[in-house]
């Protein structure tokens, strides 16, 4: 996962894979989470908490990273 932030944007290659990798991964995880708890209980509930929790955790991580960057 490439999370090093380039602040010199113009030299980056325009690659669909680079743009869509994260959103697609999050969409697949969210969909799995929404369905898991619907088809089962117990273990599948836990699966749904984890898979739906990941997008939330990712958001928190990126927003927190920005906060640190601004404080510096």
């Amino acid at each position: 996962m490439s999370v090093t932030t380039s602040r010199r944007p113009a030299v980056r290659r325009d690659s669909a894979a680079r743009i869509w990798a994260w959103p697609i991964a999050l969409a697949v995880l969210s969909s799995a989470g929404l369905l898991a708890a619907l088809v089962g209980d117990g273990l599948l509930d836990i699966v749904s908490w984890l898979t739906l929790g990941v997008p939330v955790a990712v958001t928190a991580w990126f927003v927190a990273r920005r906060q640190r960057a601004t404080e510096r």
Binding site: T5, P9, F62, A69
Partner: peptide, 12 residues
């Protein structure tokens, strides 16, 4: 919009 930005970039 994201062509030149990494996922999760928040410019200040």
């Amino acid at each position: 919009f994201m062509r030149r930005l990494d996922f999760g970039t928040v410019r200040a």
